[in-house]
Amino acid sequence: MSEGGIGSTFMSVAREKIPWWPEVDNNKCDGCAGEFDCLKFCPHKVYKIIDGTLLIEVENKYNCVVFCRACQKMCPKDALSFPNKSDILKIIKEARST
């Protein structure tokens, strides 16, 4: 339950340098018929409803906890995806060494 966001760091690297957040496939997402499971689940306010629709978008991508994929399991439509962890770790390691 890391408290991330702009201005925070993860493993001593500025959060904004770490491209870890979910992508929503709006061809699969149906807003859980108005239930919006991911929005209700995520305590970090990563998601928001696209105004006037039953669709979800990522509003605060840097609030997303690096390496957390808990919302992905909640999604009944399998509409959420995350980057490859080893790619992200590589980015973190490179940023730490500069």
């Binding site: 339950m1 689940f41 390496f67 957390c68 994929r69 808990a70 962890k85």
Partner: peptide
């Protein structure tokens, strides 16, 4: 960074 199980508390479910 991979998942190693999970737990649930009165506040949250997490990996």
């Amino acid at each position: 960074g991979d998942e190693l199980g999970s737990f649930e508390s009165t506040k949250i479910a997490m990996e």
